[in-house]
Computed example of a mutant assay.
Amino acid sequence: MSRDAIIGCILGTAVGDALGLPYEGVSANRAPQLLGPPDRYRFFFGRGMISDDTEHTCMVAQSLIEANGDVDLFARRFASRLRWWILALPAGVGKATARAGFKLWLGVRPRSAGVFSAGNGPAMRAAIFGAAIDGLPDMLELVRASSRLTHSDPKAEYGAIAVALAARHAREHESVDANLWLCEVADAVGEDGAELTDLLRQSIDSAAADETTKSFAVSLGLSKGVTGYTYHTVPVAIHAWLSHPKDYRQAVTSIIECGGDADTTAAIVGGIVGAGVGEAGIPSRWIDGIREYPRSVNWMRILSERLASSDTKAPTINPIAVLCRNLLFLLIVLFHGFRRLAPPY
């Protein structure tokens, strides 16, 4: 495992998530008027907070530590964490993930808990697999187990595989070979994933032609913003990565400027690029600007170190602290929601 890739992926996910969070659900045209450019945190007095995108990535990392390569054990540990995560009243949880969490509480087995949805939930937590798992077959099995826990539509799984392979490619190659990466994706998703591979080919061609990520999103009919449908999210996220594979700042800001599900899209891009550039490639002021507890930046670093080592004891968090934090987070989210009711429109 690569320590730099793991910590870069986790912190890259967190920073992208925190930067994109205030822009979530705002159209690409209105966002600059309402919030300004995504060059600094605008969530809470100039500071950033994370959402479910980073929380799921951290829960996956914790479960990977405890599973030590055992796919079934990983699924059970992640399912257990997801149950308690739902109970802590997270704001903005996706419908499919929420339903899967409730099914787990009702005693449904992890392999059967997924809801038929092609949402981007599995993709948002997939980059860490590519950053942390060396063996390709093992990585793919773990990605599938993570995806099927909440989403049973194969499209959600295929999108997650593409993201995981992108993070893996980013950490293993100094220069991105987009065609090599696409071949890996095509092999992994097979003929059933042909629609996704066609969209990813469009991403590659557009990036090679130096088209902006926003222009590419518009060409897919996403002028108002990138939706949570994984076949919208993943191709646009890949375009941002291919356009700026070693420039974290540009990659993340370019996808936030597309509007829509900005926290998730930026988290995905941040995780992929972060796996390639490490913590050193992420602006330090953005890392330092995250104000979180109990999943603090320092806690994420400890998590990364343990995942990169042979340690099988994952760092824990205080559930009471999580609940208190989530209530504060909900209040801030409500403030932003009411703010959007006012001009400019």
Rank of each mutant, 00 (worst) to 15 (best):
L303C: 12
G36A: 09
R111A: 15
G135C: 11
N318S: 15
R340S: 12
Q62N: 07
R144G: 13
A127W: 06
Q33R: 12
N29C: 02
V185G: 01
R295S: 03
I7R: 12
C9H: 08
A251F: 08
R285E: 15
M124V: 14
A208F: 05
M1V: 12
S112M: 14
I268Q: 09
V226E: 12
R249N: 05
A131I: 08
R340H: 02
F74T: 13
L242S: 05
C258W: 03
R249H: 11
S80Y: 04
F338W: 11
A342P: 00
G221V: 10
T316L: 14
W181N: 10
V218M: 01
L165W: 07
G228L: 04
K224H: 14
R249F: 15
Y248T: 13
S117R: 00
L334W: 05
L303G: 12
V297W: 05
P283Y: 11
P294C: 11
A28Y: 01
P32G: 10
R144P: 01
R340E: 12
R125M: 09
A118W: 00
R301F: 06
H56D: 12
Y248N: 09
T212M: 07
E195G: 14
E191K: 05
F216N: 08
E191S: 11
K224P: 00
G8M: 10
A61M: 07
C183K: 13
A275V: 08
V236H: 02
T150H: 02
S80K: 08
T54M: 03
L222C: 07
A88D: 15
I161E: 00
A209H: 07
W85M: 11
G259Q: 05
N29Y: 04
P319D: 13
A75K: 08
L307A: 10
G48Y: 05
S2W: 06
G278K: 06
M124C: 13
V26K: 00
V71M: 02
L19G: 04
A342G: 01
Y158L: 00
G190W: 02
G94N: 08
W85T: 09
I302A: 10
D72K: 14
G278A: 10
E292V: 10
H239N: 07
M49K: 13
L35A: 10
N68T: 03
G159E: 04
S304C: 12
R171P: 10
N120W: 01
A167L: 09
D210W: 05
A156P: 07
A100S: 15
I238S: 01
S206A: 15
S146L: 05
A96F: 06
S206I: 09
W241I: 15
A67P: 11
